[in-house]
Nucleic acid binder design. Structure first.
Lengths: 161, 161
DNA sequence: ATTGAAACTTGCACTAC
DNA sequence: GTAGTGCAAGTTTCAAT
């Protein structure tokens, strides 16, 4: 699906504030509220916008510690095996298979270092896991919502930048 | 600040759908719309909720490739130096200092592998960077919005789990 | 918790390219 | 035909009770 300037501007507005009214967005991008709504509906139908979410301060909910864990798996492990197993851990907030020595990289949120340790212990006990290599996050320096940059004229668009 | 059961339920509802009406949320958590609004206002004031954001499919915007990059820095590099430098790259969507051999881990979104390469080249040229070690993401297996788990009774809360 | 005024959403008729 | 505007009915917000 093709996104024009207006679509990108609307997405940018909604990434910045998902509760903005259609009239507000319309004012920003130069469209009527009705026109904005029609485009937002279309963007959701086509899957460009997958939903709307509150941004939460992990600390406020007690998630005080995060870690990245490299996973080294047995030779015939399939990505779907890893996906299925990791989906069972609420502490695993992101996971991806990657190039390089490790097979996958996990992003873990936990209450404290002890909690991280317990989770890694359980993950390391998964049948397909050979070993793990973990790094505790000391301080978060950057954390942008996905798409924050997409059509912010201050930053480059993926095509233009 | 202390969050009770209701606060956590409200946050969970807003993480799932940030555009839900107060009446809908109230129905879910067993509160009147007004009561929900008062709590949401308070949650924003106290910083537990930092905003509302559209969830976007990176692909739809042309961000087809992601990578993780470990940064090895000169001995006297401060986290704030890294933060300042990385904030200038729209492609760096997350960055954190970590324990282990590397000093920091970056999460990069780009249009394609060539784009990733160009960005890493520029980052590697930063004065404080000694070397980098990168992994391209092959496939994303898990990607939860922050707080998705916080008060979903199917998962553990950070305290209870 | 209820109420009422102001604002928002959303379908529809209409217009322009 | 595709995409925008304006309007009106039904909801939602939000402050005051």
């Amino acid at each position: 699906m093709e996104l024009d300037r207006l679509d990108r501007d609307i997405i940018a507005a909604l990434v910045e504030d998902a509760r903005a009214t259609y009239a507000e967005i319309g004012h920003d991008v130069g469209l009527s509220a009705s026109a904005v709504k029609r485009r937002v509906d279309r963007l959701r139908e086509t899957g460009a916008i997958t939903g709307f979410s509150a941004r939460v301060a992990p600390r406020a909910l007690g998630w005080n510690t995060e870690a990245y864990v490299e996973l080294f798996c047995q030779g015939k492990t399939k990505p779907s095996d890893i996906a299925l197993a990791m989906a069972r851990y609420p502490e695993v907030v992101a996971a991806a298979t990657i190039t390089g020595e490790a097979d996958a990289l996990l992003h873990i949120r936990a209450t404290d270092v002890r909690h991280v340790e317990r989770v890694i212990e359980r993950i390391a006990a998964e049948t397909f896991v050979v070993r793990t290599k973990s790094s505790i996050v000391l301080s978060r320096l950057v954390d942008l919502p996905t798409g924050a940059v997409a059509s912010d004229p201050r930053n480059g668009s993926p095509v233009g930048g």
